[in-house]
Design a protein around this nucleic acid. Structure first.
Lengths: 208, 208
DNA sequence: TAACAAAACGACACTAATGTCGTTTTGGTT
DNA sequence: AACCAAAACGACATTAGTGTCGTTTTGTTA
């Protein structure tokens, strides 16, 4: 027997394809990206690409999985190393490491929106979107619930609804990020106002 | 000379096509809807349809124009007949006639999201989206600005940013409305929480 | 260095949509 | 009733993408 090409080589190639595909999805969005774009970007032939991924959807879902896994890791790290307060935890999960709003957004988010909005009538995609939504919901809802139980947050509003409003806020920004050019956006200012909203909802007195 | 078919007949046909097309876009969304779907729904042939509209994009933009004109009319009516308070005005514009949050949303909004998000790299579509965004922004921003000047609202936050957060909130809900099934949605509750947010931002003391 | 499994290739058949154009039908005018 | 402009029709050519499959290349093993 002669195991032709090493395992690592294939994994490397696969990773290269995914990286190239991610660039393609960022540039063209999901719907207008084609397998041809990915082939060109990854310097691989049609047949070669199909040996790794059976469709554009498969490529994209793999990217989604991997980025979700990364985010989850980061989130867990944050939660561990920051046993300070639930509020800080929340801010870090929403705005990233420094817990402060800025003008950056996930460059892949427009493609993600497309993927789920257009696929809303596919059973598979719908279910998949629902699972992702519920995962996100659970992360926020759990932190808020704990914060409320500990007395750090006011129990005035239902933690589930607040969690939903956080996700919905991020989605709303993602829509604007997709549609408007950088000059027309005010991501940071809107985020800062949202933080004020959240302080109200959670009964956080104005600190910082 | 014999002016073959009456003007009214053509206008009627055109209106019928648009109505049928709207149903198609609601059912399939923008991207997956085809001219064939519209032909079937409107009971018209390929050639016939193309005599009225040169492309799917043209059909959809016509629907957008007409629904925007309607909304604008309604908004103006509300503003006129409700010289009561800027707050009431705002609630009516956001939530419709009764000014109260409910679980309904524009059934066409998922298709609209698709249209603008996918077309974000087309110059024409991008420009068109920007104009629509700015129109919406202006309506909210103007009311808030007036309310602030009149003393009804607190001037604490910039009226533009609050206006943006309203649009972004609606967009965020639209995304969830597109992705989740009715049972999984909490449109009304989220809207009620958003109203609380707005009361904070505008310094409205808890009434109603 | 010969053998060969499988990785990579790219031509091809297929599909689903678009927009056009020559023909047929329609219904108001004379 | 005959006329005829234009509304409606539907077959067709075209385009852009997908996924397959037989062939070629590659590089590790023996």
């Amino acid at each position: 027997m002669s195991p032709k090409v090493s395992q690592e080589h294939m994994e490397q190639r696969r990773a290269d394809i995914l990286k190239a595909a991610q660039e393609v999805f960022i540039e063209h969005g999901y719907e207008r990206a084609t397998m041809k774009h990915i082939m060109d970007a990854a310097n691989i032939s049609r047949g070669g690409l199909y040996q790794y991924f059976s469709s554009k959807e498969a490529v994209f879902e793999t990217i989604l999985e991997e980025s979700l896994a990364m985010e989850l890791d980061e989130t867990l790290d944050m939660v561990k190393e920051n046993a300070t307060s639930y509020w800080d935890m929340l801010m870090k999960i929403i705005f990233g490491e420094d817990g402060e709003p800025d003008d950056d957004m996930d460059p892949l988010s427009p493609a993600k929106l497309e993927f789920f909005i257009i696929g809303r009538n596919d059973d598979h995609r719908r279910e998949y979107g629902k699972v992702r939504y519920n995962n996100g919901l659970k992360i926020y809802a759990t932190i808020i619930e704990h914060g409320q139980k500990s007395g750090e947050f006011s129990p005035r509003f239902d933690h589930q609804i607040i969690a939903r409003s956080i996700i919905s806020f991020i989605d709303g920004l993602a829509v604007e990020h997709a549609m408007l050019s950088k000059e027309d956006l005010k991501i940071k200012e809107q985020s800062m106002l949202f933080v004020e909203y959240l302080k109200l909802a959670l009964g956080i007195s104005g600190r910082d």
